[in-house]
Design a protein around this nucleic acid. Structure first.
Lengths: 177, 177
DNA sequence: AATGAAATCGACCAGCA
DNA sequence: TGCTGGTCGATTTCATT
């Protein structure tokens, strides 16, 4: 009996420790990690490479502050679509492709898509919503402004409960393996 | 200053070109960038350093695939709070600090917070929502499951319209049309 | 899977326009 | 301030265990 958790790559505690550090700051030196984990620099490098190749680390990226680009306005838009057609995949992709759209979630319930967008000005937001409505199959939209944002910086490993962490390291805990 | 856009750091086209590349893939070599931009390696390095120091690049991070950690379930929770007190800052921070919470938005309107959370299982989600409700000042929650997610990978520069890009490069350009 | 040595690349410095 | 070329140190690669 599985609880739905299936680990794609098997990771040990050392991997998680590396991931926790590099997902917060990849500029940390191999030597620092090597000392912390009490393994050689080459071993750290070997593991990071393996994590990249296996897709656990999807890439290494510069984290750009959107405010430095003038992107100071965030909105959450609920988008409902006409339910006759089953083109939710396409509509979601089209919403996601719109310039200014940051995240698109397709959800259960009467509201079909939740769209997070980030723009410079109210004019840009209005234009963006117009483009959403123009998408074939989009029925209705309802937007709200974000007054304040509490970011978590997309750090997954450090945001894992003890239980969740254990489930990653040992997926055969109560799963099929 | 007519359209409300105020640039924090002044960036030129070369900076934007560098940002566009490194926010997609920081593993790109200095030499590749130098050739592409027709400047020296040192100049690329100098600019990247300046972008880091000025806070435009907040950091360099490994992008970890949440699914490799078994984080396959995403939920969007609307959280309303008791409006008597003005502790929205604290409540937002408390929501954000909960393990499993990825993003917290404080919005205008009758729903006060929109919380995006990512967990391994339904049990973890239930426990998470319990912890939300337990926060002092939280009134009511309403959650919906995310069936599909269309990601944009947090790439801001490449997700800028021509108009928005121009506004970044030349902030004194108050031509907002 | 991990190591140490060798090649390669990025970080830093002094100086220059 | 923005950039150059050169040097040093770190990272990447590879043969070996």
């Amino acid at each position: 009996m599985t609880n739905g958790l299936r680990s794609v790559a098997d990771l040990d505690e050392t991997d998680l420790a590396i991931l926790e550090r590099v997902e917060a700051d990849f500029d940390v030196s191999l030597e620092t990690l090597a000392v912390e984990l009490d393994i050689s620099k080459s071993a750290v490098h070997y593991r990071i490479n393996k994590l990249k190749e296996s897709g656990v680390i999807r890439g290494v990226t510069a984290d750009v502050d959107p405010r430095s680009l003038g992107l100071e306005m965030v909105a959450i838009t609920d988008v409902s679509v006409t339910h006759e057609t089953g083109y939710s995949d396409e509509i979601g992709a089209e919403l996601d492709a719109l310039v200014g759209v940051e995240q698109v979630y397709y959800t259960m319930g009467d509201i079909d898509f939740v769209v997070i967008s980030r723009v410079q000005s109210r004019e840009q937001l209005n234009a963006l919503i117009d483009r959403m409505v123009a998408i074939d199959g989009v029925n209705e939209t309802s937007s709200k402004f974000v007054m304040q944002e509490f970011e978590n910086d997309r750090r997954y490993v450090s945001n894992l409960s003890e239980e969740a962490r254990a489930a990653v390291i040992n997926p055969s805990n109560d799963a099929d393996g």
